[in-house]
Design a protein around this nucleic acid. Structure first.
Lengths: 237, 237
DNA sequence: GTCTATATAATGATAGAC
DNA sequence: GTCTATCATTATATAGAC
């Protein structure tokens, strides 16, 4: 169940995020510089700029990673590994309000990886899908535990609820950060905290009392999925 | 209250979205081609490609709009005007479940403008902010009406709730479309419908029964905001 | 492994004829 | 208004010396 796997054990690896940059392989230094640039500017960032950040020539970047896409793949892999080995500790207690928001706000040390992950979610692609799928699987577990503990009400489809909650929380945070980007590009944590503060009250209200005053809509929907009338014109019900 | 304003009355304007392309000014044809290209490929789309779509030379595009940014500004303006004059009819009855989703699913005719708007939300910028602010203002009105009619439960901060619901619904839809883009680039409506179908049950459950089994978290939060203890270390409450 | 120098392709934008 | 032709810049990527 615990999917913690260290990504940095090979001869060339060695990059726990808290290691000083001068101890890293050139390859790792380039990769970290790329992650940071991509996080700050998006994936349009040029190989030249990354090379400059890592104090090497552009050619060396491509020598190590083959192409810009190869570099991105290496960054994806490293970020995914980082996230996997990190998230577990900080996620456990945040299942209540805005799970992902709390997660992001807490991991200042991993800011580059987080920024990179957000860019991935913004751009789509394989990492983004893996990232979300991972969060959904985790959410299913945590939601089940919370239901068993009597903290949360049960759902008729825990998997669908987990996906819905993850998409909503992540999507809202991502959209909010896109609309009001942090002034200083590295203040993701602060911007996230401000966002979380701004939605805590309505989120808690919604999670406590819901939104609808009656059960009619839900009841009608349950009737509908139990016996779908036609499927042609009732599809927007 | 009704913010309907036609955008196409000037000598050069004239572009209700249902007019045949051959009746449009060259300038308008270029602009529409740009909206479609931007919607399909994002804002990295080249001036050359847009010119080809509109059957003109790249130079003419820049002659009419000054620069690529000028072209984007014109597209922004036109899309915003289109959205403003369109949304009101289709949004009224969708206040219940997934407001924005229903809205998007319904307006197949305006697919290019919708796709463009989604790209804007993905990329950020002025239009995106205007777009969201507009939806939030509308949501405030509709939510208030629904509360008055006894359909929805009231909130302690209707403005914050409206913003939270809009960000969540739009963000989740946007993220979902980013993760699983429609196979055919013009099937936004279908992809949106599939997304809405997939979240209707958990959304209705959440809107009906909430998520939390007790009122404790909300009560504690209300106590906290009523008398904030310190502000230094309790900020993540 | 690392560099300099360069090939190649694409971009946004301009000049000037018609 | 519309075009052809072209410029200047920038991008990724390669060749080959060290």
């Amino acid at each position: 169940m615990l999917n913690v796997r260290s990504a940095n054990e090979g001869r060339s690896g060695a990059s726990g995020p808290s290691l000083p940059p001068e101890d890293l392989t050139t390859r790792a230094r380039i990769r970290d510089a790329a992650i940071l640039r991509f996080a700050r500017e998006g994936f349009g960032a040029s190989v030249r700029a990354i090379a400059a950040d890592a104090d090497v020539s552009p050619a060396l970047v491509l020598h190590h990673f083959g192409s810009k896409d190869g570099l991105r793949a290496a960054c994806d892999e490293h970020v995914l590994a980082t996230v996997r080995s990190t998230k577990h500790d900080v996620m456990a207690d945040a299942a209540g309000t805005s799970p992902m928001g709390a997660w992001f706000a807490q991991v200042e040390e991993y800011a580059p990886a987080v920024g990179y992950a957000l860019r991935s979610l913004q751009a789509g692609g394989t990492l983004a899908r893996a990232f979300v799928d991972h969060m959904v699987s985790d959410a299913v577990v945590y939601l089940r535990e919370a239901v068993a503990a009597g903290v949360l009400v049960p759902s008729r489809d825990e998997e669908a609820r987990a996906r819905y909650l993850v998409l909503s929380a992540m999507g809202a945070l991502l959209l909010s950060l896109t609309l009001d980007p942090p002034e200083h590009p590295d203040d993701l944590a602060g911007a996230t905290r401000r966002y979380v503060d701004s939605v805590t009250l309505p989120a808690l209200e919604l999670y406590t009392d819901g939104l609808l005053a009656s059960r009619r809509m839900l009841d009608e929907y349950l009737l509908y999925v139990g016996d779908p009338p036609d499927g042609t014109d009732a599809a927007s019900a």
